[in-house]
């Protein structure tokens, strides 16, 4: 019984965090690639917004998404409040600035002299972009890990937007809060270990495949 419930919680945690991570990276990495390599008007302001976004308090994001999704809110009709979709939305918002910001600094750290020398060989602009991207690879892996770290450990936004509904929106972090409040410290702690285990596994896989990629 407990086992089934636990599995469900783990599965939902992976589903919500995985989807949010995917969305944040699919949007954030190309965004960071442009931000780190192109010059355009308003770039400074966007950089400022991104770096502020990297430290957004999850509860505030949760609150804003809550208001957006609530019945009276502008997105009320899609019925995402207290649903995994709403949780994914708020976690994507939290992780996007990290994916974009770290990617952008990794790209900007690629030596401009190297880029000129590569370009002088007659690269197309696509080849140039791919090459810069591959040179910034380690920084981009760090961007993904940072985004993942933010999402998996986050409790404020999923709590507000998801509501911690058993069998529906309860994830590891919100379950830990609940169990702790109810004084079930041992169970809370074991949930904590599961969370840690997931983080450790994700990091190990990244390092493993990152290392493979390198050689």
């Amino acid at each position: 019984m407990v086992n089934n419930e636990l599995l469900e919680i783990i599965f939902l945690t992976l589903r919500v965090s995985g989807s949010a991570l995917a969305i944040a990276c699919v949007l954030g990495i190309p965004f960071g690639l442009i931000l780190g390599s192109e010059e355009f008007r308003g770039k400074k302001i966007i950089q400022l917004l991104i770096s502020t976004g990297m430290g957004l308090p999850p509860v505030v994001v949760g609150l804003v998404v809550y208001l957006l999704l609530s019945n009276q809110g502008p997105l009320g009709t899609i019925n995402w409040l207290f649903s995994p979709s709403g949780m994914i939305l708020s976690q994507s918002i939290l992780a996007f600035p990290l994916a974009a910001g770290f990617t952008s600094s990794a790209i900007a750290a690629v030596s401009p002299k190297l880029i000129i020398q590569i370009r002088s060989m007659g690269t197309t602009s696509w080849q140039e972009k791919i090459t810069i991207f591959s040179q910034a690879r380690n920084g981009i892996i760090a961007a993904v890990l940072a985004a993942f770290g933010r999402i998996i450990s986050e409790v404020g936004a999923v709590m507000l937007v998801g509501g911690n509904i058993e069998g529906h929106t309860r994830v590891l972090s919100t379950a830990i809060v609940l169990e702790t409040r109810q004084g079930k410290f041992a169970f809370a702690l074991s949930l904590g270990f599961v969370l840690l285990g997931i983080a450790l596994l994700a990091n190990s896989l990244t390092y493993y495949f990152g290392g493979q990629w390198e050689k």
Binding site: S111, L114, Q117, T131, Q135
Partner: peptide, 12 residues
């Protein structure tokens, strides 16, 4: 036209 720069830089 291939150029060898005064301070060549390489891919990692």
């Amino acid at each position: 036209i291939s150029m060898v720069f005064q301070r060549p830089e390489f891919l990692k």
